[in-house]
Design a protein around this nucleic acid. Structure first.
Lengths: 334, 334
DNA sequence: CACCTATGGGTAAACGTTTACCCCTTCTCG
DNA sequence: CGAGAAGGGGTAAACGTTTACCCATAGGTG
């Protein structure tokens, strides 16, 4: 049997109340008793039972987070930043992976809520199919959406302005003289995919560029980038530039172009989105839209804390402006 | 106030015991009462309180996992596989990131143990500095080490035979005629780094190859691969082959070589380790040692379950043989 | 019919904390 | 010197489940 606070109190010759007060620092206790309790705890090897504590207090000092797919390298970067922030306030993060599946996402959300997390950070899998899960979670605990959001549901969100971000990429290749611009991204399930697509169309239209260039929508994976590349190669002529929905797609695309001896940026310009770790290691290094991970994380925790204090706060949606990072895939300087 | 099992029982006109028995299926209850309980629960929107349940039963149906750094793409692949396995038995995974810091690692381990996880899966940050954390965790809950292990401490482990794996890579480049072989990896903090280094030295020695080629030990990061590349370029002549401690390093190295117009595989052969998602997208596609993630995960859960059943089982250490994946960075086909 | 067992139900005691409430002592100040 | 406040201690009641234990009934068996 594990050693409980009762054992500690007994050994220290005080009541459990006093022991608890010393151990949690919830009230002043005379130094001599405090010392006795501490040594008793240490010598017995006392370990706080967080489950019992959570049951009594109704708080766990734990935040849950659900990402669509931990294997997508953009998400770990956010997770790391969030974790660092939480650490500052002594809270722990429990991370779950939805495996791109709204059913699993719902299970995870329930598992976290069942365990009474103090808040939930979620990157919803789908703009529509995740709505029920989000709604249920919001009933139970403070929730903040990051990066992606569920459409037509009022809940806090913080992310980058995707629409604007892709706009930056398009403007950039246009300024380099591209007129026939293709777009390769994921199908419009998630808000990110939707917004990025919208951003592309908006700027293309604004410049009066041809609308018959390829718009290929698959998944946010490198494999999709590869097959999209093959598809474009099959239906010549090649566009002047390919704007990709994220870096993974762009990297897959670059790999296939390379294999087929298409030169980037000489034959075609390529841009990505996210600025993941490997973007600068791609061949050629990838011009991309950077998401400021630290800033997203900071804002996310701020929103979550605000909502924890007041559940009835008006819904907040924070869109951070992304920035373009020019590298060699669009001929940028080294 | 949330709706409790007491409310459900009342609404259904049964005792809390019966309600609990229906809801958990722990004992037979007459169909008519069961139905009443279920409808009552549904209509009240009853939600199981996992914290209270955990306190009473002493089990949480939750497994904790700690990885050194979620940003290292090898770990997410293991996490995904582990999560899929756990799902089959209806358990949830709580994932924590140690940020490559044994202090944080300890905090995470304690946080998980405090929350009474039923078991802990850990990839220890350090072969020596993580020992105390591991020892403490083992006292509290079943633990399995994956991939890396703590030295001189008897605890279950499952991983790949790193020593053998690097051996495969060295044998491969030797068979292609390389005699001057460099090794770029991480400093010998972790068991992986140690074993991989040992594998390199063993095979190099066995073939009587020169021992004065570079052995550069830094971190498991791409940036280190870059600077190692620069270092080798500074002290000509270039080796015939560079065997890297993981894929990230190799990818960084490839990037720098490319920038400096060193051709791979014509001027120098390069190999990696892990076979992460990006290995085949590198330029050129990377020859590497594949870690069988699914198999690791399966074995890991098997060990954990065995240990949960019997804490006094003899310690098990399962080393899985890795396999070499030949790609173009050593002139491989395709 | 007497007895034994199986079945399904309820009561209430845990699980380990935290904290509302109460009490006693000591100090402050008019 | 008395009233009031402040400080520090204890008792015991929560928190929401699960389950050991008990009881009543029904059915089976000699």
């Amino acid at each position: 049997m594990a050693v409980t606070i009762r054992d500690v109190a007994e050994r220290a010759g005080v009541s459990v109340a006093t022991a608890s007060r010393v151990l949690t620092g919830s009230r002043n206790v005379s130094p001599v008793l405090a010392e006795r309790v501490n040594t008793a705890a240490r010598s017995l090897g006392y370990r706080h039972n967080a489950v019992a504590s959570a049951l009594r207090r109704g708080r766990t000092n734990t935040v849950g987070m659900i990402v669509p797919e931990i294997g997508n390298p953009f998400f770990p970067s956010i997770v790391e930043a969030v974790e660092r922030r939480l650490q500052e306030s002594g809270r722990d993060l429990f991370l779950c992976d939805a495996q791109q599946d709204v059913t699993i996402e719902r299970r995870r959300a329930r598992a976290l809520a069942d365990r009474q997390v103090d808040g939930l950070i979620i990157v919803p899998v789908s703009a529509t199919e995740s709505r029920a899960t989000l709604a249920e979670a919001v009933q139970r605990t403070p929730v903040v959406q990051v990066d992606r959001y569920v459409e037509d549901y009022p809940a806090d969100w913080v992310g980058v302005n995707d629409e604007l971000g892709v706009g930056l990429a398009v403007e950039h290749v246009v300024s380099l003289g591209a007129t026939r611009i293709a777009f390769v991204s994921a199908s419009l399930d998630s808000s990110s995919a939707q917004q990025r697509y919208a951003g592309f169309e908006r700027v293309v239209k604004r410049h009066g560029l041809p609308g018959d260039t390829p718009r290929l929508l698959g998944t946010f994976r490198a494999e999709w980038g590869r097959s999209a590349a093959l598809q474009m190669l099959a239906e010549q002529p090649l566009p002047d530039a390919v704007v990709c929905g994220n870096d993974e797609i762009a990297i897959g695309l670059l790999g296939e172009f390379r294999r087929c001896r298409i030169r980037v940026p000489e034959d075609v310009l390529v841009t990505g989105f996210d600025d993941i770790r490997f973007a600068q290691l791609a061949d050629p290094p990838l011009t991309t839209v950077r998401q400021p991970g630290e800033q997203l994380a900071a804002e996310c925790i701020r929103l979550l804390d605000a909502r924890m204090i007041d559940r009835d706060l008006p819904v907040q949606r924070v869109a951070i402006a992304p920035s373009l990072v020019v590298r060699e895939s669009t001929g940028g300087s080294s």
